[in-house]
Write a protein that binds this DNA or RNA. Structure first.
Lengths: 108, 108
DNA sequence: CTCGAAGTACGATCCAGATCAAACTTACCA
DNA sequence: TGGTAAGTTTGATCTGGATCGTACTTCGAG
């Protein structure tokens, strides 16, 4: 269902604030986004974004993040991965990502 | 348990990002915060902050918001109410509240 | 053409937390 | 003094969604 290498213009729109909060409220997903945001290119292969987690559970979370318009499924080198949709998010909810990542970085 | 008219310095600290997201991810609570943020004084009696909801459910949500450090229980005129802890929130996660409220306002 | 590694699909399980009803507490006011 | 309006407490119920195991699919490497 993730439809690998989706063209940027067929990506789902960024979800409403309400839904974004629900999606980001899960510790696993927040960590995935945090790790992506830390990367300079804001992209990474799937398995770099979690640990100690069943693969099917990871897939589940990726699907949710993609559907909410937060991640863009892409090929990263040889393997599948995701890119953080910074610009789209910034347009939908300006300042949200920066606020969250900033505070996370600050909290140890 | 809300301990009415708590002194500002015995309020619980603002929760970590993770927990804040969990707390704000509920539609009922987000709406409560939205309404408070809309008020000029950022405070209002309990019953102004929700509708079509059982009172005990409302109490439940208020308790969670207070424990997360988002609301401050106060007397508003004759009746009980809450004040939004803008400054504390801004200090804990700068920009978060503004980002959320801005986007909510924009979404109609 | 296999093999293996990486991801996905599906079904089953399990639990935090959202909700409500009912009984109780407060406090104001007539 | 009630009476009533507003919140709280408690206990019970129910459901969304997080998790896992297993089986299936892809795809690159040898």
């Amino acid at each position: 269902m993730p439809a690998w290498e989706v063209l940027p213009d067929q990506l789902p729109p960024v979800a409403a604030v309400q839904k974004l909060l629900r999606v980001l409220a899960d510790p696993v997903r927040l960590e995935m986004v945090r790790r992506l945001a830390a990367h300079p290119a804001a992209e990474a292969p799937c398995s770099d974004l979690y640990d100690g987690l069943n693969k099917s559970t990871a897939t589940h979370h990726f699907k949710i993040l993609v559907e909410a318009g937060i991640l863009h499924p892409v090929m990263v080198g040889p393997s599948r991965g995701h890119r953080l949709r910074r610009a789209s998010l910034q347009e939908a909810v300006p300042g949200l990502l920066d606020a969250l990542m900033g505070a996370l970085a600050r909290e140890t």
